[in-house]
Design a protein around this nucleic acid. Structure first.
Length: 587
RNA sequence: GCGCCCGUAGCUCAGUUGGAUAGAGUGCUACCCUCCGAAGGUAGAAGUCGCACGUUCGAAUCGUGUCGGGCGCGCCA
């Protein structure tokens, strides 16, 4: 473990601590990398933390710690600075050792055992399959996929899951919308409700129905409209008109089910299958893969939803009011109680979500991460409340909120309403800016931060686009290695001690930091840290590249520098792989 | 009205679980290829970390209040 400098330093400090402050040996030892290089390679505030317990001046404690610090070849210099920091300057030899470690570990460099093989489920996207994914879903997809890769790299056993809302009213509306377009294509004129799905893809699905089954599902307009309340004037936006539109829509759905009978299932299923396939295809192309596509409908079919409500009843968390069954979520921190079964006997979405979470826990995950749009934050207390009510460990449940991505085109906000059909789809976005820039742009923001996605900027192939900066470093290194022409395996024998100028040592430090970045990012569910790290690393490399020549005549020095470059390339690859961004060898 | 998130350089954003003189990109200014890829580099200007108290050796970070922005408060999903 000669390469793990940080833990060795920690061990040294532990020994010093034991003799200086035997009563406070449990003081956490915090080593940080100072941003100011004159402060050395590592610094600890241990002395300051001990000041209170020992009732002594921090600088005095620091000097005692230094006196008791075991001698080590790693440390070139250890000194007291500022209010009581202990700054460590590493022996250059110890710094550059990491280069060898990177080359030996390859794609595994930076891999951590933080997760210790524990099972974690990451559920993300989970968009209603009622239309194409838009740029907001794209962000959740990019975040979830990067986070999953990150957790896997940090030692977790990750299951990536998409929850398919195939059981609700929205799916009925989609089926109805498709059917109405189909009728229209067969000359049956039923006014298309403004609150049905307007997108062109609905007409496409209707067309497919005709191709496959001709006029099999045609019914008369009078029959379709029989008993429906009708639509209010199109320009009315008052509550009454809105309500009437909803009632009309529900009545049409009821008519459709009645008139089509078993054929309704076909229409419904056809629309679902098409949208889900489209969604899956879109995500696959985006480099976002799922291990499980979990059906909400299955929760009903297997009786788990009903079982869940019974379970809550048995535990005394359900009461009846106005004919509906209410879950007493206020007993678990929610601001009001919630209905799980309506007066009409139908379960609410919340009920199936409780069942879904019960199912998640029954599958034995050590951690369950839900990635939700930030607009769902008010939903957290009731879900975690339900988890607690079922006597499950709510501490295993973690909800990561993703703020909206607002797309700007020509400096103007682009609309994202699915119903109106004016949204910008993820597919369009990918087509315009490319998958790499798309994934990276999404990853470049903390997930809970609003994201202004500047389409024009992401599209620009020139210089402003940060993803190219990193890929360019990678391509440059590939080019150098090609010109060097040697066998990469021989680099392990390079005399790394020849790497001695400040830029080279700084890069070595940066490479060593990758492990910390992985662990911190995994702990905070923050893959964006990797994007920022890679930008820094690429920056240091570019600076070095411009200042020094790698392919020099001195073979030993040349090999050492090529080894460093190869190590940088490896870490860029490992990092970009987590972010789902490709590493072209030339661009 | 109540709850959650966010206010850091002109703009877009980081900030290593409370550390040292607050950073990067972009934009602006001035430079650097006869040389491994200029999609690059070097240097400069740019800040009351929204505001006010408080906690302590020490606050952009923690607490309270306040102003500003976003989102959520259904027998919808």
């Amino acid at each position: 473990m000669a390469h793990d400098v940080k833990s060795q330093l920690t061990a040294l400090l532990q020994q010093a601590l034991a003799s200086v402050a035997p009563t406070a040996t449990d003081t956490p030892i915090h080593l940080e990398r100072p941003r100011d290089p004159t402060h050395g390679d590592f610094a600890t505030n241990l002395a300051m933390q001990l000041a209170k317990a020992l009732k002594k001046n921090p600088r005095e404690i620091a000097s005692q710690l230094l006196a008791e610090l075991p001698v080590s070849l790693l440390v070139a210099r250890a000194e007291i600075a500022g209010a009581g920091f202990i700054n460590f300057t590493l022996d250059p030899r110890a710094k550059v050792d990491v280069v060898g470690a990177v080359l030996v570990d390859g794609g595994n460099f930076g891999r951590s055992q933080l997760g210790a093989g524990h099972k974690v489920q990451v559920e993300f996207v989970s968009a209603n399959p009622t239309g194409p994914l838009h740029v907001g879903h794209g962000r959740g997809a990019a975040y979830g996929a990067s986070l999953s890769s990150l957790l896997a790299f940090a030692g977790w056993d990750v299951t990536r899951e998409y929850y398919v809302n195939d059981a609700g009213r929205q799916m009925d509306i989609l089926g109805l919308s498709t059917w109405l377009r189909y009728l229209d294509q067969h000359g049956v004129s039923v006014p298309f409700p403004p609150n049905a799905y307007q997108g062109g893809y609905v007409r496409d699905m209707a067309q497919q129905m005709t191709v496959a089954h001709a006029a099999k599902y045609v019914r008369a307009a009078e029959a379709v409209l029989a008993g429906t309340p009708g639509l209010p004037e199109a320009d009315r936006a008052d509550d009454e008109a809105k309500q009437q539109r909803e009632l009309h829509l529900d009545a049409l759905i009821a008519r459709a089910k009645e008139l089509l009978g078993p054929d309704w299932d076909y229409v419904h299923q056809h629309a679902l299958n098409e949208q889900l396939a489209d969604c899956r295809d879109d995500l696959e192309q985006f480099g976002v893969h799922f291990d499980v596509w979990f059906s909400e409908k299955a929760l009903y079919d297997t009786g788990l939803v009903a079982r869940c409500v019974v379970l809550l009843e048995e535990k005394g968390h359900i009461y009846l009011q106005n004919g509906a069954k209410w879950f007493r979520s206020t007993a678990f921190g929610d601001e009001k109680d919630r209905v799980v079964q309506r007066e009409n006997g139908l379960y609410t979405y919340f009920a199936s979500d409780i069942a879904y979470h019960l199912n998640k826990f029954e599958r034995g995950f050590d951690k369950v991460i839900n990635i939700w749009g930030a607009d769902h934050h008010g939903y957290i207390p009731r879900v975690s409340g339900a988890v607690k009510a079922l006597d499950l460990d709510a501490g295993k449940l973690q909800v990561a909120l993703v703020q909206f991505a607002v797309l700007y085109r020509n400096g103007q906000k682009a609309s994202m309403s699915t119903r109106s059909g004016e949204f910008v789809t993820l597919r369009e976005l990918r087509g315009e800016v490319g998958n790499d820039a798309c994934r990276f742009f999404y990853a470049l923001r903390k997930s809970d931060q609003h994201l202004d996605f500047d389409l024009d900027l992401a599209k620009s192939q020139t210089n402003e686009n940060p993803v190219y900066y990193i890929q360019y470093a990678h391509a440059r290194i590939c080019s150098v290695l090609a010109q060097w022409g040697g066998d990469l395996a021989t680099l392990a024998d390079a005399d790394l001690a020849l790497l001695s100028n400040p830029r080279e040592l700084a890069i070595a430090n940066k490479l060593a930091e990758f492990r910390d970045v992985i662990e911190n990012a995994a702990r905070d569910l923050a893959p964006h840290l990797i994007a920022f790290y890679l930008k820094d690393l690429a920056g240091e490399f570019h600076g070095w590249y411009n200042a020094e020549r790698m392919l020099v005549d001195d073979a030993a020095l040349r090999d050492a520098r090529v080894a460093l470059a190869a190590a940088v390339r490896q870490v860029i690859r490992n990092g970009l792989a987590i972010l789902g961004v490709s590493c072209p060898e030339s661009m």
